[in-house]
Every structure is written in C-alpha cells, then in structure tokens.
Simulated assay, not measured.
Amino acid sequence: MIFPEVSNQKWLDDLIDVALAEDIGGGDVTTEAVIDDQKKTKAVWVAKQAGIIAGLQIAQRVFEKLDENIEWHPFFNGGDEVRTGETVVEFSGNCRAVLIAERTALNFAQRMSGIATKTNEIVRELKGFPAKILDTRKTVPGLRKLDKIAVKAGGGVNHRMGLYDLAMIKDNHIQAAGSISKAVERVRAKNPDIRIEVETTNLEEVDEALKSGADIIMLDNMSVEMMTKAVERIGTRAETEASGNITSKTIREVAGTGVNFISVGALTHSVQAFDISQRIKEIF
C-alpha cells in the first residue's frame, strides 16, 4: 500500500529537517571521528517482532536528506505484515549518512509500525462486525499526519484531521451554547456545508441530537445496554460512533450494538514502538 500523502510534501521535509537538527545538532562527534567521509556501506533493517510495517517511505526520505544517492530497496510496503527476523529493507550509501540518520529514521518507522500493528490487532478482533475503527486527535504534536497514515496502514479509518474538517460538538460546547440544538444551529449557520458530530451521554441527548439534524452521534461512555437502545433509536438517520474507555475486553460487545464506528484514542496516545534493528552488512 503506497500512501500519496507522503509524496512531494513540504510539511514532511520540514518535519524531517527539525527531527534531524534535534539529533545531530553541531555534528555527530562519534561517527565523524570514526568513519572516513568517503566510506560507503550496505545495511539492512530487520524486524525483531511480527506485525504491520509502516513508515518506510518516511525513513527513506530521512536518509536521502543526508545522502541524496542512497539506494533503497524495501521488501515490504506500508500495511504489509512482517514476521520476526524478516529483512524489511536493504539499502546502501555513504556510511556516515547511514549511521547519522539511523535513529531518526527508525524513530519514525518504529512509531508508525507500532500504531499500524496495534490498529490491525483491534481491526482483527472486530472481524465479522461492520463497525470500523477510528483514530482520534490524541497524537504527538507535529506527528498527526504520520500517525494517521499509520492507522490507515493498520486497517483503521481516519477521523477528522483537526478542528477544521468536521464540527464536533462536545459537552463544553453544549454547556456554552445552552443546548445541543442551539449549538448545532449555530454551527449550521456559520458553516452550512460541514458535517456535524454531537457527543451524547444519554438517550435524551441522543433524541435531541437526532432532532437537531446531527450527521454523526457520538455515544460517549454509555453502557452496552444504553448504546444498543441508542443505535436502535437512531437507525439510519445518522451515523453512530462509540467512544470512551473501550478496551480489548469490551470492544466486541460494543461492536455488537451495531455502531458504525468505534474510536480508540490508545491507537496513537499509548504507542508501543515496533522493534526494528539496523545492521551494517559491509563497509567499502
């Protein structure tokens, strides 16, 4: 699976520049002392666990920042399943560049692969249910696009990218406006073409959200019993999203209520990095 989001994008170059500057600073005092600047190397990345790989395109661009002639030969695409011990990519180039860029490249790929792997685990748990897994805005500042690309690689669905592409009316908005209906009315007046999601915590709020014409109704921290009743009331008049303290132990029960989407903040806010090792094969 190739993601067009990472092709020829200035935001990605800027992000990589910041990441490299953070790590290199005034220079790699170890590599620059030990390795002759004319030496070349062949290296590989090896998966030290099984899971879903992601972020190889980003890693390639990290290395290219320090050696534009890097030869990059991936054996997998983003979204592919890898097994423990498999070689993920083989590459060659300037030895200093390969060593200096190593940690930054791995940081991107290991985080993205960890997100993709966790997402895929949850997606597999829901096999047989129509519900789709959504990500959230609980991402590391500056890394949101990469986090969401990783969710897609794992089989999840991207929710809104930010505050600008979907109106989400939550409890504080409702309190400030005075009611769900007033909040929806104000958003519609100012942004007539934008989709609106409303957070609800009980059946009375569900009814009000329906009456106000919400496009998506979030069922937040509801019991499975209440959520089932809410989904029945809503029918096809709006899409439904389950949210709030959903765990691997409860997610199939939640999916069984018939909701369209289940959002899981842990996909991106509690990432366990995927274990990848860089190994030098030869120096010449």
Rank of each mutant, 00 (worst) to 15 (best):
E5K: 15
S7C: 11
Q9M: 12
K10L: 14
W11K: 07
A19Q: 10
A19G: 04
E22K: 06
G25K: 13
D28Y: 02
A33I: 15
A33R: 05
I35P: 00
D36K: 02
D36Q: 15
D37N: 05
K39C: 03
K40E: 15
K48M: 12
K48H: 11
G55W: 01
L56Y: 03
I58F: 02
A59R: 11
L66W: 00
P74F: 05
F76A: 03
V82P: 15
R83Q: 13
T87Q: 08
V89F: 12
A101L: 12
T104Y: 13
M112V: 10
S113Y: 09
I115L: 12
D135C: 04
K138A: 04
K138Q: 09
L143Q: 04
L143N: 07
D147S: 13
G155T: 09
G156L: 07
I169F: 15
N172Q: 00
A177V: 03
S179K: 11
S181T: 15
A183E: 02
V184C: 05
E185Q: 02
V187Y: 09
R188E: 00
P192Q: 08
E197C: 12
V198G: 02
E199F: 11
T201W: 14
A209G: 02
G213F: 09
D220K: 08
S223T: 13
M226S: 10
K229F: 11
R237P: 03
I246S: 04
T247W: 01
A255E: 08
T257D: 15
N260K: 03
F261D: 05
A266I: 13
T268Y: 10
S270T: 03
I276M: 03
S277M: 05
S277I: 02
K281S: 10
K281F: 14
